[in-house]
Design a protein around this nucleic acid. Structure first.
Lengths: 125, 125
DNA sequence: TCAAATTACATGACGTGTCATTGAATGACA
DNA sequence: TGTCATTCAATGACACGTCATGTAATTTGA
């Protein structure tokens, strides 16, 4: 029934869960308290900041995160309301959207990224 | 700014996230469709099934999962409504609760665990 | 070229998680 | 022993994610 291999799998899984929750929680709380954004928001900022090219982002970002399309849309809403990002409709295909950091967004991302990296280092050691 | 070490940390973190979401998602969907319970519910069943001793469980279970006390309480609600688990108040300390699987709960856990282990194996390879 | 299928994104209903708080039982100790 | 602090669990308000669906733009192909 419960083979040693099963036990080991379950242990491995619990370890992943623990690491994930501990790390995500720590980052989320830190970003929330210092910059008033959550981990999810930061991850979108981070992805946008990371893409220097000018492709139609929204769609492509979706391919680089486990988030749902619907979740993405709402996160971008929040980021836009917070004045950290803006949507530009894409001339070539008006269904698509470009995302771009505002100056405020870029500034905040810079500071938040330091915090983010530090907490990753601390938690993934 | 973005040192190679930072890059590597971020890569490692994305990898953990991907594994976590892929695995959790697969298990959740499978359990949901075949047994009408979610991953969270299963994990509580699994913990209860795993503890043979008769300590005041609720509290101790909390120490073995990243879940909040409040989340636990609600999951147990659902499990109880589904007839898979029951709460017994603890004689020694009437603030505490024992949890116990019902027969239905034990039966379901047996089948679901097989599925769970199989999906872990598939996803954590 | 036009109707049907597809694609990109937004939105509303809904489930579940968190935080803050409550209620009840217990513990500490003057 | 009576008061105050602590602990366990439940609950309500709220935030956020998912699913199903809607809307508009684009593509396909007869």
């Amino acid at each position: 029934m419960a083979t040693p291999q099963d036990r080991q799998l379950v242990e491995q899984w619990r370890s992943i869960q623990t690491t994930y929750f501990r790390t995500a929680g720590a980052i989320d709380r830190a970003l929330e308290s210092r910059f008033s954004i959550g981990l999810t928001e930061f991850e979108i900022l981070d992805l946008v900041a990371d893409s220097a090219d000018s492709a139609c982002r929204m769609k492509q970002l979706g391919e680089r995160t486990p988030m749902t399309q619907s979740a993405m849309s709402k996160v971008v809403d929040r980021l836009e309301k917070a004045g950290l990002i803006c949507r530009h409709s894409c001339e070539d295909d008006r269904r698509s959207l470009f995302l771009e950091l505002t100056d405020a967004g870029r500034a905040l991302h810079g500071k938040a990224a330091v915090e983010h990296r530090a907490l990753l280092k601390e938690n993934l050691a």
